[in-house]
Design a protein around this nucleic acid. Structure first.
Length: 729
DNA sequence: TCCCACTTTCTTTTT
DNA sequence: GAAAGTGGGA
C-alpha cells in the first residue's frame, strides 16, 4: 500500500476526494462522461480498506460488464495488491450466480443449474407454445419471450401478469409465463433475468439468509447505476437495508438500456430512497477537447428529462468536429479508411487509437470490406458472438448435459447430433414415456427398450447414446474439462464431419470448435476456476466486449452500446441518418428518442482528440437502397464546433440528376417516388411487363415496399417496388 | 429418418 | 444476406 494515503491528495481533484473520503451511509455520485468515476470507485475501496473499515471479503462491487469489473480489479491491485483476494467484484449476473450456486437449494435449484441464453429461452418458449397448442403464426415466440423478460425485470409475477393482462397478447404471454417458470425449475435452469430475481425471492423467503449477506457485505458499490432495472434496484435495496452503506455511481445522460428494463428513475430518485444520502458531482472531464465536449453538449441539452449539467475541461479547444456527407455506405467506409490513413500519418497514431461506431451490427460489414481492402488491422466487438455459433453451442450442450442431466433442452439439442438415427418421432415417444412415469428424459434414455412403440434397433441406438453420456459424466472427476471436451468431440465425430466437407463454411465451423477447445484450456489455466461447471458459467456470462483487447494494434469496430465506458483518441460515428440513428421506430416515442440522443452523447464523448460524424445520402437495406435524410441530431449540433464537408460524388450529384438505372453504380433517385408507393393498395389490378396482369394481395411497408401479387398466368410473385415496373390498370 | 431445396424472417442495442 | 423453418421425395 502506498504510504499515509498521500495518493488521495495527489491523484484526485477536490470533488473526487470528497466522494472517496465520505465512507459511511448512502452516497450518490453523479459522474459525467470521462470524469474519472472508475478512479473514484477504486480509490474509495482502497480507502475503506486502509481505514480498516472493512475486510476485503466484506466489500461487494458490482458492474455491468466483466470488462469493467476486470479493470476495477486491476486498478485496486495497483493501489493495494495484498487486499484484492476475497473481494466480491464482478457483474451483477456473475456475482448473483455465485450466490445462487451456494443458496439455490433453498428455492428448488441444484447448485449445478444451467444458465439459459436468449436462444435456449426461445427454444423452451416454442416448446411450451406447442404443448399449449398456441399458434405460432399469430404470436411470435420472440414477442412472448420479450414480454416475459420485461415482466421479470419489472418484478411482475406470472400471477400478476395474468391479472393485469389487458390484451390477447398479454394473456398468451401470461399463460406461457406460468408454464415457463415451472419448466425452468424442472430443467434446473435459470435465464439471465432469474439471476437477478431469484436472490430477491431467496431473501424474501429466508430472512436469515438475507441477514447473513447484509452482515457480510459491509459496503456496497455500484457502477453505472443509471442502467439498473427494477430487479437490480430491489436486490440492492434488500442488501443495503440494514447498514445503508451503499455507494452508487452513474450519469443519467448515459442511460442507454431502457429497452432492457433499465429505469433512470433509480438514479433520479436515489435521494428520495435514501433520505440522508451524500451527493457528489463530478463535472470535470479529463478526456475530451472542448470542441468535442461542446458539440456533444449541444445535442444532449435537447433532452427534457435530465439533470441540467455541463461538463468542463481544461484540455485545449482542439480540432473542430468533422461532419461528412457521403453518397452511400460504401463511400462512407472508404472515407473512414482514408481518414484513418491521414490521421495516422499526421499525428503519429497507432491503429488502436481509432474506433468506428455504428448503431446496428449489420453496418459493420461494409466497413470491414474497406479496412480489409486497405490492409488495415481491425477487430470487431459484437455481432455474431462466438459462444452463440451453432456448432459451438452444440458442443456446449454436451457439456451442459454432463453437468446437469435435467437440462432437457440441451439434451434434445444433441440427442441426434451428430445424426445417429434418433429422430423426432422417437424423441417424442421417449418424452411422453418420461412424463407418464415422472422421470427426466435423461433417465428414460436408459430404458428405451421398454418404451412402447420404439423398435429394437432404435432402442439400441438410444441406449448407446445414454451410455456415452453416462461414461463422460463419471469421467468428470478424473479428467480436466479440456480432456473431456476433446475426447467427446473425437468420439462423437463432431469435428470429423466438418473435416470431410471441404466447403468454406465447414472449415470455419471446424475452426470454431478448435477455438472452443483452446478457450477451455485457457480457462483451466486462469485463476477463475477449473471445473466444467465454472467454465460453463463463464461462457454463459461472458460477452464479446469482455474479451476485447485494447492493447492489440487494430482499429476497433463496435456498436455505440458496446462503446460505453471506453475512450479513443479518434472516434467515427457512422450512419447518422434519420431512421437508422435514431432508429425509425424510436422516433415516435419521446422517451425512446431521448434514449437515442443519449446514445449519441455516449458515442461522441468517447473521443479524446478528434470526432468524425458521417451520414450517407443512400443506404442499402436488405435489397433496397432508399434515399436517406440526415439525422435530426446533426441539426441539433451547434455549428460553431463543426466543420461540414461533402464528398465529391455528393457535390456532383447535386448538379447532375441521375437517370434511372443508367449505370449499375448509380442508384435511382427515389425522393419523388416515395409518394407513388402510396397509390398502390390491396386488391388493385396491375400489369407487370414480364408476368402480365394480376391483383395485389399484400403490401409490406416495413423495409422498403414489397408487394405480393397474384398474377393471372404465373401465380403469386413477390415484388420489390422500385425495381418492379408496375402499371396500374 | 434423412436430405435437399425452397421460403420466410429478421435487424436495434446485451447480461 | 444469413439462418432457421417447411415440405416433399428417397
Amino acid at each position: 500500500m502506498k504510504n499515509d494515503l498521500q495518493w488521495i491528495y495527489t491523484d484526485l481533484n477536490e470533488e473526487q476526494r470528497k466522494a472517496v473520503c465520505h465512507i459511511d451511509g448512502p452516497v450518490l455520485i453523479l459522474a459525467g462522461a470521462g470524469s474519472g468515476k472508475t478512479r473514484v470507485l477504486t480509490y474509495r475501496i482502497a480507502h475503506i480498506l486502509s481505514e480498516k473499515k472493512a475486510a476485503p471479503y466484506q466489500i461487494l462491487a458490482m458492474t455491468f460488464t466483466n470488462k469493467a469489473a476486470a479493470e476495477m480489479r486491476e486498478r485496486i491491485q495497483k493501489l493495494i495488491p495484498e487486499m484484492l483476494a476475497g473481494m466480491w467484484i464482478g457483474t451483477f449476473h456473475s456475482l448473483f450466480a455465485r450466490l445462487l450456486r451456494r443458496e439455490g437449494e433453498k428455492i428448488g435449484y441444484n447448485s449445478n443449474f444451467s444458465i439459459y441464453d436468449v436462444d435456449d429461452q426461445l427454444t423452451l418458449i416454442k416448446i411450451i407454445m406447442g404443448d399449449l397448442k398456441l399458434s405460432i403464426q399469430n404470436l411470435s415466440p420472440k414477442m412472448i419471450s420479450y414480454k416475459i423478460s420485461a415482466a421479470k425485470n419489472a418484478m411482475i409475477s406470472p400471477q400478476q401478469l395474468t391479472e393485469q393482462a389487458g390484451n390477447p397478447v398479454d394473456e398468451v404471454a401470461a399463460k406461457v409465463y406460468i408454464e415457463y417458470e415451472k419448466r425452468l425449475i424442472v430443467l434446473n435452469a435459470m435465464d439471465f433475468d432469474d439471476l437477478l430475481i431469484k436472490p430477491i425471492h431467496l431473501f424474501q423467503q429466508y430472512p436469515d439468509v438475507k441477514e447473513n449477506y447484509q452482515n457480510k457485505f459491509n459496503y456496497l458499490l455500484v457502477d453505472e447505476y443509471q442502467d439498473t432495472n427494477r430487479a437490480q434496484y430491489e436486490v440492492l435495496h434488500l442488501l443495503a437495508e440494514k447498514r445503508k452503506n451503499i455507494c452508487v455511481v452513474g450519469d443519467d445522460d448515459q442511460s442507454i438500456y431502457r429497452w432492457r428494463g433499465a429505469d433512470v428513475r433509480n438514479i433520479l430518485e436515489f435521494e428520495a430512497d435514501y433520505p440522508n444520502c451524500a451527493k457528489f458531482r463530478l463535472e470535470q472531464n479529463y478526456r475530451s477537447t472542448q470542441n468535442i465536449l461542446s458539440a456533444a453538449h449541444s445535442v444532449i441539452k435537447n433532452n427534457i428529462k435530465r439533470h441540467a449539467k455541463k461538463l468542463w475541461t481544461d484540455r485545449p479547444v482542439g480540432e473542430t468536429v468533422t461532419l461528412m456527407t457521403v453518397f452511400d455506405e460504401r463511400e462512407e467506409a472508404r472515407y473512414v479508411v482514408n481518414q484513418i490513413g491521414i490521421e495516422f500519418r499526421k499525428a503519429d497514431r497507432r491503429f488502436y487509437d481509432f474506433a468506428v461506431l455504428y448503431r446496428t451490427n449489420a453496418q459493420s460489414r461494409v466497413l470491414e470490406d474497406s479496412l480489409r481492402a486497405d490492409g488495415i488491422p481491425y477487430v470487431i466487438v459484437g455481432g455474431v458472438k462466438f459462444y452463440e455459433r451453432k456448432e459451438v453451442k452444440d458442443v456446449l450442450a454436451y457439456l451442459k448435459v454432463l453437468v446437469n442431466p435435467a437440462d432437457t433442452i440441451s439434451l434434445k439439442r444433441i440427442i441426434n447430433y451428430p445424426l445417429r438415427g434418433i429422430g423426432d418421432v422417437t424423441v417424442n415417444k421417449l418424452q411422453t414415456f418420461a412424463q407418464e412415469n415422472n422421470k427426466t428424459l435423461f433417465k428414460t434414455l436408459s430404458k428405451a427398450s421398454s418404451v412402447p412403440g420404439i423398435q429394437e434397433p432404435t432402442a439400441k441406438r438410444v441406449t448407446s447414446f445414454y451410455k456415452l453420456l453416462k461414461k463422460y459424466r463419471s469421467l468428470r472427476k478424473e479428467l480436466s474439462p479440456a480432456e473431456i471436451a476433446s475426447s467427446l468431440i473425437e468420439e462423437t465425430g463432431i469435428l470429423k464431419q466438418f473435416k470431410e466437407d471441404t466447403s468454406v463454411e465447414s472449415q470455419t465451423r471446424a475452426e470454431n470448435i478448435r477455438e472452443l477447445l483452446v478457450a477451455i484450456v485457457d480457462f483451466s489455466h486462469s485463476t477463475s476456476g477449473t471445473t466444467l461447471e465454472e467454465f460453463l458459467q463463464h461462457v454463459s456470462l461472458t460477452t464479446d466486449i469482455d474479451s476485447w483487447d485494447d492493447k492489440k494494434n487494430a482499429v476497433t469496430l463496435m456498436t455505440l452500446h458496446a462503446a460505453k465506458g471506453l475512450e479513443f483518441p479518434v472516434v467515427f460515428i457512422t450512419g447518422l441518418e434519420d431512421g437508422l440513428f435514431p432508429l425509425s421506430r424510436m422516433s415516435d416515442d419521446p422517451f425512446a428518442l431521448e434514449e437515442e440522443r443519449r446514445l449519441f452523447y455516449v458515442g461522441a464523448t468517447r473521443a479524446k482528440d478528434k470526432l468524425y460524424l458521417t451520414w450517407a445520402k443512400n443506404r442499402r437495406k436488405f435489397s433496397e437502397n432508399p434515399a436517406q435524410v440526415k439525422s435530426r441530431f446533426l441539426n441539433e449540433l451547434d455549428t460553431r464546433f463543426i466543420e461540414s464537408v461533402m464528398s465529391k460524388s455528393v457535390k456532383s450529384h447535386q448538379i447532375r440528376r441521375p437517370q434511372l438505372f443508367d449505370n449499375p453504380n448509380s442508384m435511382p433517385d427515389y425522393e419523388n417516388e416515395s409518394q407513388e408507393y402510396k397509390e398502390y393498395h390491396v386488391g388493385m389490378r396491375v400489369k407487370h411487363q414480364l408476368f402480365g396482369k394480376g391483383v395485389i394481395l399484400k403490401i409490406d411497408n416495413r423495409y422498403g415496399v414489397k408487394l405480393l401479387v397474384l398474377f393471372d398466368t404465373v401465380g403469386e410473385k413477390r415484388l420489390v417496388l422500385p425495381y418492379a415496373k408496375l402499371e396500374i390498370l
